[in-house]
Design a binder for these strands. Structure first.
Length: 513
RNA sequence: GCCGCGUUGGUCAAGGGGUUAAGACGCCUCCCUUUCACGGAGGAAUCACGGGUUCGAAUCCCGUACGUGGUACCA
């Protein structure tokens, strides 16, 4: 059996959204599982929609996800070039071969003429124009013109396209790995343009030629391609490559959470969650859309979540590392129906991954995050302890800011209001005594601090419950964070005492006014 | 309009002729925790509809509805 070769073939027209990343991921998982090759091919045949930075962006997204292509524009292999624009000269030959064999023809209709015809049909309330067997003889092409006329037009360089000639009343059947046998008749498909007037191939010609030349064994793509699959199947046949035709894998779509349609780039903004892996800045509008990365997702969690959106291994297991995904992945267990994207569940995956990750694994992310927020960390060992203490309560990496910044920066705001109403002299005395005791403490750990705290409370006949909240607020500024004594332990003596003193003076000033 | 694909709780889903129809997210209750989480125990909530086939249908078949995609010199 031939070596498995798959390709992810995005067009560089904008940010790579979750649907695209999932397609790449499934390609990658399948390739790695079968010791195959994963190829990145850039489908930049549409000059008008080309966005220069998009290619690098795609590569960056894949890299962040841990999906490294074996071949691609940035990693040359045996089957390059990997940008279709750079393969332009290749395609014409095949298109003309099809013309010669009677499976395609030259068409000289200008886009304006066709548009005018469409407009006319619309005005008459008729269905859209289907440039196919029913009308092609009324159009200007090498089928309706004499060979001499055709030749003359070509000789003078009259702009023309090459269209596939689809026979009516034929049945095209093929097997899709996910959907089983798919049968369609050719009456619904029109004579698709294969080669455009600018000499670039359309997608239809380019996928077939490149998948053939690149020896692709399994062609993964979104379900939106299913209706045009007969064109591709026919092309494989007409080009005489039927035996090498890849297995088709039409992936289900990722849909909007709130109903209608497939998830689009706009939905993120509208519904308040990211649709891109990495931040994408739209060059035209200047709009910046944050990605999963910037929102605080771990790449492991992101691909885990995407993998499970439309696939599962048949067990109850939901948390998979990349290696586990590779090991368990199977085409048979990919769903055939679309799935609505659920951001809550996505966050759950991230939370699970944060809990599961070691402090040292999380360390670089948190360090970067704090540096971005200009929170200075003097002691990296202390940061690691902090991570270990608070990670279970962080759903997103960005939650570490609220959960942990008070270890490194004095709280800017202290929620005095929450304790002021129950503040009294007894408590004041208690904390004064606590400061004294803590200053004399040699063994600075959570248990010792808690014991000392409780002892003073009981001597003064105070309930500890009444005192814990004030202490927490003095140390962190609000009603959050891990256990108070754990916090004090990490804060060390001088800082702990300092914050209690500061809190106390604030309280006493406030309670007098 | 026409053509394709799909349909198990709000969402992700297991199950593919006989099940009390798993599990997860979210939601609710309680326990733990003198903050909040984590953790633990419970709860509400589902086979789109109508016909067949069958002793028996979530499961097979046919319709309908709904959803979704395509119908470009876009991919």
């Amino acid at each position: 059996m031939n070596k498995v070769r798959v390709r992810f073939a995005p067009s560089p027209t904008g940010g790579l959204h979750v649907g695209g990343v999932r397609t790449a991921l499934y390609n990658y998982l399948f390739a790695k599982k079968n010791n195959g090759d994963f190829v990145l091919r850039i489908e930049d045949t549409d000059q008008s929609r080309y966005v220069p930075v998009a290619e690098q962006y795609i590569i960056d997204c894949l890299a962040w996800c841990g999906i490294e292509p074996d071949e691609g524009p940035h990693k040359e292999g045996l089957y390059g070039p990997y940008r279709q624009s750079e393969r332009k000269v290749l395609y014409r030959k095949y298109a003309e071969e099809l013309v010669k064999n009677g499976h395609a023809y030259y068409a000289f209709d200008t886009p304006e003429e066709i548009e005018a015809l469409r407009e006319k049909l619309r005005a008459e309330g008729k269905n859209n124009l289907q440039y196919g067997h029913a009308v092609r003889l009324n159009m200007r092409n090498s089928l309706s013109l004499s060979p001499e006329e055709t030749e003359a037009l070509i000789k003078i360089g009259f702009p023309h396209v090459i269209r596939i000639k689809i026979n009516p009343d034929e049945f095209v059947s093929f097997k899709d790995v996910i959907r089983g046998d798919v049968n369609m008749d050719t009456n619904g498909v029109d004579d698709k343009v294969l080669l455009k007037a600018d000499g670039m191939p359309t997608y239809h010609l380019a996928v077939v030629v490149d998948d053939y030349l690149m020896k692709i064994t399994h062609a993964f793509r979104g379900e939106e391609w299913l209706p045009s699959a007969p064109v591709h199947v026919l092309l494989w046949k007409y080009l005489g490559w039927q035996k090498q035709m890849p297995k088709w894998v039409h992936l289900p779509l990722i849909l909007k959470p709130d109903g209608n349609g497939k998830l689009s780039k706009r939905d993120g903004e509208r519904l308040g969650f990211p649709v891109f892996a990495l931040e994408w800045k739209d060059a035209n509008s200047g709009v910046v859309m944050k990605g999963f990365k910037e929102l605080g997702f771990l790449p492991e969690a992101f691909i885990n979540m995407l993998a499970l959106l439309g696939w599962n291994d048949g067990t109850e297991k939901e948390i998979f590392s990349k290696d586990e995904l590779i090991e368990r992945f199977s085409l048979e267990r990919i769903h055939s129906s679309g799935a609505k994207f659920d951001f809550e569940k996505a966050k759950w995956f991230n939370h699970e991954w944060i809990k599961k990750s070691s402090p040292s694994h999380l360390f670089p992310y948190i360090k970067d995050l704090f540096e971005q927020k200009e929170i200075t960390i003097k002691d990296y060992h202390q940061l690691e302890n902090v991570i270990s203490l608070v990670k279970d309560r962080c759903t997103l990496l960005t939650d570490f800011i609220e959960q942990a910044q008070f270890f490194f920066v004095k709280p800017q705001q202290i929620d005095i209001a929450s304790i002021l109403s129950k503040w009294n002299d007894q408590k004041n005395l208690f904390f004064t005594e606590l400061i004294r005791t803590y200053q004399l403490t040699d063994v600075w750990n959570a248990t010792e601090l808690e014991n000392a705290f409780k002892e003073i409370a009981s001597i003064n006949q105070l309930k500890t419950g009444e005192l814990m909240l004030p202490l927490r607020i003095m140390l962190v500024g609000g009603k959050y964070g891990p256990g108070v004594f754990d916090i004090a332990a990490i804060l060390e003596k001088p800082e702990t005492v300092n914050r209690i003193e500061h809190g106390l003076s604030l309280l006493n000033t406030e309670s007098k006014t």
